[in-house]
Design a protein around this nucleic acid. Structure first.
Lengths: 123, 123
DNA sequence: CAGGATCCTATCCGATACTG
DNA sequence: CAGTATCGGATAGGATCCTG
């Protein structure tokens, strides 16, 4: 058997033998933690959103990057995409079950950082 | 007061009003979820590591990027750096308390993805 | 061993224009 | 509204050489 399979943290307690380059999880994690992927996934945690809602929600994202990010995440099976062929068209995105699984630790990460960060309102 | 302060997920249940561009957490999250930052943080979860151990641990990373990533994470207060001025020098890195806080959800994310991913050994 | 400095390339990504 | 296609600047990041 070709090695290169990835081990979970639980299995690797011993030393530092993780992160082979050909690990399939590498690519997936890279998508999830991509510059905009993080925010798309977190945005969709509360509710499904339409394209323009996502755009407005995530300040600074361009339509191009939103499109690209959404496409990648849909391909990865993390979010679904529903098209209502009305005029004008209406496209809605939401988390798949897997997407919810994944967005949980992401939200957790986000919350831990914001909580730790500046007591900005203290000033 | 200038708005733009970030709200935690818990507070925003209502709609999609998160992710202002000037949110301080944005930058921090971007560092943490950077291409290599993720793997450095996860690598250090089990034990402190020396420079070359990190390099060997994270397949595909160049020394340049490892250096850059480490420097950024040290500046953010996520990891510490200890230099023993021997010959040759010996530099060790490890997670700060904050770094441990942050690497937890990251490891969680990683584990969820690897568990979900291909039953590669099924073939 | 643990980097710094330099060069150079790939890609990211925003701006713009166009489509159904 | 929700994209696609194209162009060009900015940046990420690899390769190589050099230092304490």
């Amino acid at each position: 058997m070709k090695e290169g399979a990835q081990l979970t943290q639980a299995e690797t307690g011993k030393r530092y033998d993780v992160f082979h380059a050909d690990c399939p999880a590498r690519e997936m994690v890279d998508h999830v933690t991509s510059r905009w992927g993080v925010w798309v996934l977190i945005s969709l945690r509360n509710n499904d959103l339409r394209f323009y809602e996502l755009r407005d929600s995530i300040q600074g994202i361009s339509e191009k990057m939103l499109t690209q990010t959404l496409r990648a995440l849909v391909q990865d099976g993390l979010i679904w995409r529903e098209v209502e062929p009305t005029t004008p068209p209406k496209v809605t995105y939401g988390l798949s079950e897997f997407g919810q699984e994944v967005s949980e630790p992401l939200t957790d990460l986000f919350d831990r950082i914001t909580q730790r960060l500046p007591p900005r309102s203290a000033g």
